[in-house]
Design a protein around this nucleic acid. Sequence first.
DNA 1: TTCCTAACTAACTCGTTGGTTGCTTGCGAT
DNA 2: ATCGCAAGCAACCAACGAGTTAGTTAGGAA
Lengths: 193, 193
Amino acid sequence: MAPRDAEATRRRILDAALAEFATHGLAGARVDRIAVTAKANKQLIYAYYGNKDQLFDTVVEHAFQHAHDAVPFTPDDLVSYAATLFDYLVEHPDHLRIHEWRRLERPGATELERQLFNEKVDDLAEVQPNYGKKGRFSPADVMVIVVALASAWALAPAALRDLATHDPKQQRSLIAGSIHVLTHYRQDSDTAR
Amino acid sequence: MAPRDAEATRRRILDAALAEFATHGLAGARVDRIAVTAKANKQLIYAYYGNKDQLFDTVVEHAFQHAHDAVPFTPDDLVSYAATLFDYLVEHPDHLRIHEWRRLERPGATELERQLFNEKVDDLAEVQPNYGKKGRFSPADVMVIVVALASAWALAPAALRDLATHDPKQQRSLIAGSIHVLTHYRQDSDTAR
DNA sequence: TTCCTAACTAACTCGTTGGTTGCTTGCGAT
DNA sequence: ATCGCAAGCAACCAACGAGTTAGTTAGGAA
């Protein structure tokens, strides 16, 4: 398995690419560095993944699938879903960064991504059909809030994050609490100024 | 004012740099492109701003100051603060992008940034001294939530954003409503699973 | 008018980087 | 054993891009 194992080499390259792209982004990443980290010849990167852009796309797709598999969606319990998503982001900061780079450097959504979100939103709509009313949260808007809160501390400006809680346990507790409140105490009047 | 106006040239370069960095980031930006856009000679960029990195830092600092001036902080009315912040982000997508790039490519906070956030958090602590209790939101944590919600739609994954409301008015209403609920209905028990 | 300085410019340098080429090496089938 | 082919490699290259240099032009002061 050690020598001449194409599959293992592919994986080593992909892992190295994930690390490189996560820290430097698409434009900042260096193919040579990926080759060194992966202990693979540079040419193999091109042989297996085409070019830098395609390699990046492959990394993104993998990260997405990985996250989807690791964080099961529970439309009837958004509190624990947010908590699980939060835990995932804490444990895989590289994946979060990859998605940020991707949003900035490669706008647009892949088919897989679209499909996974559609699925989630549909599941949510089934459980909470009343969301759809005017002025209320649509299922997709609910997801937006959930995702935003789960990544709130991770995405906060450094200067602010330094002032806030550093304890992940407490962060998760605050996120879960917020979502609990939001899903149970809905305001009736329009957002008074 | 047209010819040989150093101040105007400096500003043109800065504007061009903002646009270039906002779309391509630090690593992806091209100094030559900035020079062309600014209708200035490349050397002037180096004469006025040192090098690419310093130019980027200057742009970031300017954007930060601009946002701070445009969005007055109202610690006693977080709902309207969030709404105003949201409006600013909608009207200045470049500034939001610049700050994202900055978080990814130039970690760490500048002195100005630290100072502005300290100020806000202190103001908030004064108005809401009870926030500090254990398990509750500290002022900084409140700010984290407010910022996260104000930028929730802007930062959502493309595939999800496509499914959610596109109407900024409604987005703002949902943001304001969420913050209203969060600041008025605090949960008592610890985030039940 | 003449000088001096600041604003501005064109053309170059040179290290870097994505991508390629031609070759060698090991492994499994015949 | 040997043939065929996929896996792997070192060296190369053209293009690019940050930063520099040596010079020209405008405009105000003496």
